[in-house]
Amino acid sequence: MPSRTKAETPRFAPVILAGGSGTRFWPRSRRARAKQVLALDGEQTMIQQTLTRLLPLANPADVWVVTNSLLDKTIAEQLPNVLSEHILSEPAARNTAPACALTAFLLFNSAPDTVLGVFPSDHVVENGKRFAQVLQAGIEIAADGENIVVLGVPPTRPETGYGYIEQGDVVAEADSASGGVPIKIARVKRFREKPDRHTAERFLAAGNFAWNGGIFLWSARTLVYAIREHSPEMAPILQEIAAAYGTPNFARVFAEQYPKCENISIDYAVLERRSAKGEHKSGIYCLPADFGWNDLGSWASLHEHLGEAEADNVLDGATTGIVAIESSGNYVYAPGKMVALLGVDDLVVVETPDALLITTRDRSQDVSKVVRALHDSDRHELI
């Protein structure tokens, strides 16, 4: 089991991934108003919530955001305490491997021991205190040598929409603050792709599988070395970009070089390849993300998050009232409107000034098909 001998607290730099096109929450989300800059479950936007829960462990000056040119100005306005030079706009979307590794290369020469944490910008955490406890334990492990830490969400259903982490031996338990539930630290056997229903049921029954929530911890040095080993064609590109950071040439070099990076996820580029070494050699550890995690991936998951029961009618936003007669399980967002439901179940109704979405909760994962249809019919003003 990894253990640190240094007394000092590791420097921690969160990297918030905030790209994305916002298709699954259409019509509220658009290319320039994606899910992460919307307030879907409170007064704060999703990215503001992400930063807020990280601040107990991180200095705002150490926070980085990787986004795109459609969202960077909005994010800078919503996160005024994050340094403007730490908000990086990708010249081209290249999946999560280049986005995760870019900051590691930027910090490698000056602060290679910094522990980087990768965090999606659009997830929900219900128990912020437990989140901080698990994260602190993970930071300590990631600061020790070449270890990599992943946070695995305890599965509650045979979900086919997530990747899975197959856990091996539990090697230790980290104490949590104030006598809370100990944090089990398990080796990672391997990462599993999104399964079919039968396989997902088998994973759930096995008891040693967790959902991959996309939260990772590693030192800048560890990730740079891992990219050099497992994705060697990407390393010199990112190294050249890092060398130009802080100079007048950075924007040009970034725009010219970054699109040359392979379009690949960090899971494929590093984690799966490193886990192939075997659970006792890979140095990858899994900690439980047992803090009420939800990725809010669709209108249906937002209904689940906001409603107390499956049959609840959820009235969201500034809708002025609802009359529900023989109707249940519906999600409604219609600001300024009184909504009447009569004899309908499990619908999603979302109104914006220029669009109206009506679908069922079990089809809400397919809302991106509407966006594709609008694109194909040149209705770009609605995207």
Rank of each mutant, 00 (worst) to 15 (best):
N208A: 06
E193N: 11
E201W: 11
T199D: 14
I215D: 08
S219L: 04
L223W: 07
F216L: 12
A205F: 10
I241A: 02
R221Q: 11
D196V: 03
G246V: 05
N212L: 06
P236C: 04
R197S: 12
V224G: 03
Y268C: 14
F203T: 04
T222I: 02
K260Y: 09
N263C: 12
P259C: 02
N263L: 15
A205Q: 09
F191C: 08
Y258I: 07
E233H: 11
Q257Y: 09
Y245R: 09
P248V: 07
A242R: 00
S219K: 11
I266C: 03
I237S: 00
N208C: 09
E193P: 04
S265D: 11
W211I: 12
R252L: 14
N212W: 03
R202I: 15
V224S: 10
I264K: 13
F191L: 12
N263V: 14
C261V: 05
G246P: 04
R221V: 00
I237N: 00
A200F: 10
F250C: 04
E193T: 15
P195M: 05
N249H: 15
L217Q: 10
R202K: 11
S265L: 04
V253G: 07
K260A: 13
L204G: 04
A226L: 07
M234V: 01
D196T: 01
P236H: 08
R197T: 09
R228K: 14
A251V: 12
I215A: 04
S219G: 07
A242I: 04
A210V: 03
M234I: 09
I215H: 07
N212C: 07
R202W: 12
A243N: 11
R202N: 13
C261L: 12
H198Q: 15
Y245P: 06
V253N: 00
A205E: 14
A210F: 03
F203G: 05
N208Q: 11
Y268T: 15
A226Q: 04
F216I: 14
K260S: 08
F209V: 13
P195K: 00
E262M: 11
E262T: 11
D267E: 13
R192E: 13
Q257V: 06
H230S: 12
E229Q: 13
S231K: 11
A200Y: 10
A255I: 06
R228V: 00
L223R: 06
S265E: 04
W218P: 08
S219V: 01
Q239D: 14
